[in-house]
Design a binder for these strands. Structure first.
Lengths: 225, 225
DNA sequence: ACCTGAACACCGTTCAAGT
DNA sequence: ACCTGAACACCGTTCAAGT
């Protein structure tokens, strides 16, 4: 619309091109903006183009496909974070790493789902992996077990954050689901008899799971050593 | 195509209607078939209708929306399983429950992704939840911690199975990703120095994570008691 | 009550054309 | 080199019409 009103005037001699000249950087920035504000489903080539005041096909000059775009967006988001907290104790180092990971996923709703999607996970996912594998050297685990431990941690973290990021749909909150089902409840006595608080504490739930996994790694590593 | 060739003949007097009379059951069965054979992305109202020899809109007589269909498909798949193995020891009971859960997700590729999708998770997800919460009574954990432990277990299981179900894309297998990145590797020394087998053992990785979480629950519960 | 056919408002992407 | 516009092959779903 606005583009149609604008006549094809000659461009000024290389100065003050205002918001002209689409670049890959601008496309990725706009993609991250869009995903942060409207969720991952809102990221559409057409919507993104609208947002940039350009035709959908203009994006393909800077991005080879939607998958390429999403991978670049995920890479940019991941590059914000420093996963190495420099703790001497491996338990604290691992916990700090995944607290950063979680905070990043919550700051960019939809990032978790992006990282779970095949093909879009960027090379930067190896950054928290590297920190974790290094810390886990102190456990005495072999290479395979350290990698298995990492996948346990990252799977837990991604599933918790992507679950939380879907909110605020009240019916998805654990405590509400439990309550809703209690009303319709038949056949799930241990679920029905749960005594739950009014709101679910996602932070505490994450810390609980993180402690469980770290202590579990400690126990399993000790048994195998 | 085949439907167009068929003239609108009168139906036989209530006998041998062959494959006539679409029912909700048939729609759900066909949906599960389709998702099992071609993956969750193949489940499309139009494709499913084609598969049933019917117009896309005919499905809406038995299913209120695509979400409704997917939820029903997930419910049917979940109803196949018995999560309660009747173990006396809570650790073995929990492990058995999630081994069944995992086997179910692997038998129906795409089920894991369905269960991770908001709104489509059916009420039947409370079945493994009930078994787990009951077993965890033996740990002495309070209601909140038992639920947190359940979410840790289910998140881990879903992420592992949905990761595995995306295969067999060789570039997604952990060991291959690691190897691929090692080549392009810069800045991830602990990743690059990994000594990995040629193929990734998903079963062993799952058992490792399961042991880690169960022993972690044991340790955390003991500390809080 | 159940199904069809046309239509609507979307997708990602290709291709030929403009500058 | 970069962008546009029309088009293609898809989506889920609405609506009016048939039987």
């Amino acid at each position: 619309m606005a583009a149609a009103r604008k006549p094809p005037r000659r461009r000024a001699p290389a100065t003050t091109q205002t918001t002209r000249d689409l670049t890959r950087d601008k496309v990725i920035d706009a993609g991250l903006d869009l995903i942060d504000r409207e969720g991952p489903d809102a990221v559409t080539m057409r919507r993104l183009a609208d947002h940039l005041g350009v035709t959908p096909m203009a994006l393909y000059n800077h991005v080879s496909s939607k998958t390429d775009l999403l991978r670049a967006v995920a890479e940019r988001a991941l590059s914000e974070a420093e996963f190495d907290a420099g703790h001497a104790d491996w338990r604290e180092q691992v916990k700090a790493c995944f607290r950063v990971f979680r905070a990043l996923c919550l700051r960019h709703p939809g990032l978790a789902r992006l990282l779970e999607t095949p093909d879009v996970a960027p090379a930067a996912v190896f950054s928290p992996m590297d920190v974790t594998l290094r810390a886990l050297r102190w456990t005495g685990c072999n290479d395979q077990d350290r990698l298995r431990a990492y996948f346990t941690l990252v799977g837990f973290t991604l599933s918790q954050t992507s679950y939380q990021s879907r909110g605020p749909f009240p019916d998805l909150e654990p405590s509400d689901r439990v309550r809703a089902e209690r009303l319709a409840g038949r056949g799930y006595p241990s679920v029905e008899s749960l005594r739950m608080p009014a709101t679910w504490d996602f932070d505490a739930a994450f810390e609980f799971g993180l402690s469980v996994i770290v202590r579990g790694i400690e126990a399993v590593a000790g048994a195998r050593r």
